[in-house]
Deep mutational scan, measured.
Amino acid sequence: KYLVLALYDYQEKSPREVTMKKGDILTLLNSTNKDWWKVEVNGRQGFVPAAYVKYL
């Protein structure tokens, strides 16, 4: 498993997404889509914009 760092705040806009705050450390679950990565944060799984996170 990889960890990624939230570069920006992101507010979920659909039930498939998750909210994150700048500085959050997220567990990367799937990065096959170049635009949306599946992550786990605070016990929830969902998608965030790939451009908003970077590998640690």
Results as ranks from 00 to 15, higher is better:
38 K>Y: 15
15 P>W: 09
7 L>N: 04
27 T>A: 10
25 I>A: 04
55 Y>V: 15
53 V>W: 01
24 D>P: 00
52 Y>P: 00
6 A>E: 01
3 L>H: 11
53 V>T: 04
36 W>G: 00
20 M>C: 06
3 L>N: 07
29 L>Q: 04
36 W>D: 01
23 G>Y: 05
23 G>W: 05
27 T>G: 07
13 K>W: 04
52 Y>W: 06
10 Y>N: 00
33 N>C: 10
32 T>S: 15
3 L>S: 08
51 A>H: 12
21 K>Q: 10
18 V>S: 02
51 A>M: 13
2 Y>I: 15
20 M>Y: 02
23 G>E: 02
28 L>K: 01
47 F>G: 01
30 N>H: 08
39 V>P: 00
7 L>I: 13
1 K>E: 11
21 K>P: 00
16 R>V: 14
37 W>P: 02
22 K>V: 08
39 V>Q: 00
41 V>L: 15
2 Y>H: 15
2 Y>M: 13
20 M>D: 00
18 V>R: 02
34 K>M: 09
42 N>T: 06
2 Y>Q: 15
7 L>K: 07
2 Y>A: 14
40 E>G: 06
51 A>G: 12
28 L>R: 01
11 Q>F: 14
47 F>D: 04
50 A>Y: 02
48 V>G: 00
46 G>Y: 02
29 L>I: 15
17 E>Y: 05
47 F>V: 07
8 Y>A: 13
45 Q>M: 11
55 Y>C: 15
6 A>Y: 03
11 Q>P: 07
14 S>C: 10
10 Y>L: 01
5 L>D: 02
15 P>V: 11
11 Q>V: 15
56 L>D: 07
25 I>R: 06
36 W>A: 02
16 R>P: 05
8 Y>S: 11
28 L>M: 05
27 T>W: 11
4 V>R: 02
27 T>C: 11
4 V>N: 01
35 D>H: 15
50 A>L: 02
38 K>I: 14
38 K>A: 11
45 Q>F: 08
43 G>S: 07
22 K>Y: 04
6 A>P: 01
12 E>Y: 05
35 D>Q: 12
53 V>N: 00
14 S>D: 13
33 N>E: 10
34 K>C: 10
16 R>C: 15
11 Q>H: 14
6 A>F: 03
27 T>P: 14
40 E>V: 08
44 R>L: 08
17 E>P: 04
24 D>F: 04
18 V>H: 03
41 V>R: 12
39 V>I: 08
16 R>E: 14
39 V>E: 00
53 V>C: 11
28 L>P: 01
49 P>S: 02
25 I>F: 06
26 L>Q: 00
14 S>R: 09
40 E>K: 07
24 D>Y: 04
50 A>M: 05
22 K>I: 07
40 E>L: 08
37 W>N: 01
56 L>F: 13
8 Y>Q: 14
44 R>H: 08
48 V>I: 10
23 G>V: 01
31 S>Y: 09
47 F>L: 08
29 L>C: 07
8 Y>T: 10
34 K>E: 11
32 T>Q: 13
27 T>N: 10
18 V>E: 01
39 V>H: 00
17 E>G: 12
19 T>D: 04
55 Y>P: 14
20 M>R: 00
33 N>F: 07
43 G>H: 07
1 K>H: 14
36 W>Q: 03
24 D>N: 06
37 W>M: 05
33 N>P: 05
56 L>Y: 13
28 L>A: 03
27 T>V: 15
52 Y>C: 09
24 D>A: 07
3 L>Y: 14
50 A>Q: 06
46 G>K: 02
48 V>W: 01
28 L>W: 02
48 V>P: 00
46 G>V: 04
22 K>P: 04
17 E>N: 05
4 V>E: 00
30 N>W: 07
12 E>Q: 13
47 F>K: 03
30 N>R: 06
16 R>Q: 15
50 A>T: 06
50 A>V: 07
42 N>V: 05
50 A>C: 06
23 G>Q: 02
7 L>P: 00
53 V>Y: 01
24 D>Q: 13
